[in-house]
Design a protein around this nucleic acid. Structure first.
Lengths: 160, 160
DNA sequence: TTGCAAGCTCAAGTCAGGTTTAGATCAAGC
DNA sequence: GCTTGATCTAAACCTGACTTGAGCTTGCAA
C-alpha cells in the first residue's frame, strides 16, 4: 500500500472513461463509496476502478443501476471483486444473455411466420399477441417495467 | 363499409390493449391520425387497429417511436398496411433481430472468456473495452443514445 | 330528460441515467 | 502568496414514453 493508493475523482474518471458527474451519481446511488480528503474532496481506492468497470460491463448486459447495486452489495465493501466473485456474477450474467438470445430467436421465428402470411392479424399473429399481453399488465409506462429487454424474455419464456 | 367503420378511442384501446392516454400520445406524435365527431371526439378507422398493433410489435423489436413514425410515414396515409408493405417492413425488422442476436452471441463469447480468467482487467477484458468505447462517445446519457439495445450491435458489428 | 361513463384539453408528474450550471472551495506549482 | 485547475454542493435540465389530474363536454341509454 503506497501513499498513492487513494485517487481523486478525476483520475477515477480518466481511468474508467466515465464522466466525473457520473461517478458522483453512482456514489449518490450507493454503487461506490468514497473517502474524503481533509478539504472534503472525494478519494477513491484503486479497487474502485474495478468496481466502476464492473458497472459498465453490467450495464452493457442490460442491468439497471439498481440491479448492479444489488450485485455489488453482495461483495465485501471496498474490496476488489476477486476471481470467485466474478465467476459467480458472470455466470449469472451469462444466463441472462442466454435468455435474451433465446427470446430473440423465438421472436424471429414468429416474425418469419408473419413475413410468410403478411396478415398482421390480431387473432393469429404471435408477435402481436405478445404485445397485447404486455399491454395488459396494468398501468405505468411499459417501458419502465422492463419491456424493452426483459419483456420479450418473459413472454417468450412463458410459452406464447 | 358499414357505419361501424369508425371506432371511438376507447374501442381502439380495448382492441389493442393500449391505454387511451397512450393512443392520444401516439396521435400527438403523429403516429396515427384521428377524424373527429361533431362534438370533437376522436374517431378512428378500423385500419388503425393494425397501425397500433404494428407500433407495439416494432416497439418490442427495439424501435423508438420516432423510428416507428418514419416507417409508418412510408405507408399510404390511413391505409391498412397490406401484404407487400408488411413484407418489406418485417424483412427490415428481421435484419435488426439478426444483428441483435449476433451481438449477444459475441457478448457471450467475451463473457465466457472472462469467466475463465476472472480478471476484470481494464487492459485485456473485451467486455470492459467495449464499455470504455461507449463511454468515450461524448456527452449525453449513454442510455439515450441507444446503448441499451443498439450499442452492443454497433460495437460488435464494427469488429471488436 | 336525466344520469353517467367516456371523452376532451392542457399542464404537470414519473422514471432512469445522467449532464449542466452556478457559485464557492481546495490543492498544487511557481 | 498567488494563480490556476480540480473539486465541491445543490438544483435544474435532458430524453423517451407515457400517466395523472383538473375541470369541462359528449354521447347514449333508460
Amino acid at each position: 500500500m503506497h501513499r498513492t493508493d487513494l485517487i481523486a475523482i478525476g483520475e477515477l474518471a480518466a481511468r474508467t472513461g466515465v464522466a466525473v458527474s457520473a461517478i458522483r451519481f453512482y456514489e449518490a446511488k450507493g454503487l461506490i463509496e468514497a473517502l474524503r480528503s481533509g478539504g472534503g474532496q472525494r478519494r477513491f481506492l484503486r479497487a474502485d476502478i474495478r468496481r466502476v468497470s464492473f458497472i459498465l460491463i453490467a450495464q452493457q448486459l442490460g442491468l439497471s443501476l439498481e440491479e448492479i447495486a444489488a450485485e455489488l452489495a453482495r461483495l465485501p465493501a471496498q474490496r476488489t471483486p476477486n476471481a470467485a466473485d466474478w465467476t459467480r456474477i458472470s455466470t449469472d450474467l451469462r444466463a441472462r444473455i442466454d435468455a435474451r438470445i433465446f427470446a430473440l430467436e423465438r421472436t424471429r421465428e414468429l416474425l418469419d411466420q408473419c413475413i410468410g402470411c403478411g396478415c398482421l392479424s390480431l387473432k393469429k399473429c404471435g408477435l402481436y399477441n405478445r404485445g397485447d399481453k404486455a399491454a395488459q399488465r396494468g398501468a405505468g409506462p411499459r417501458y419502465l417495467l422492463g419491456d424493452r429487454a426483459g419483456e420479450i424474455a418473459e413472454v417468450a419464456g412463458s410459452g406464447g
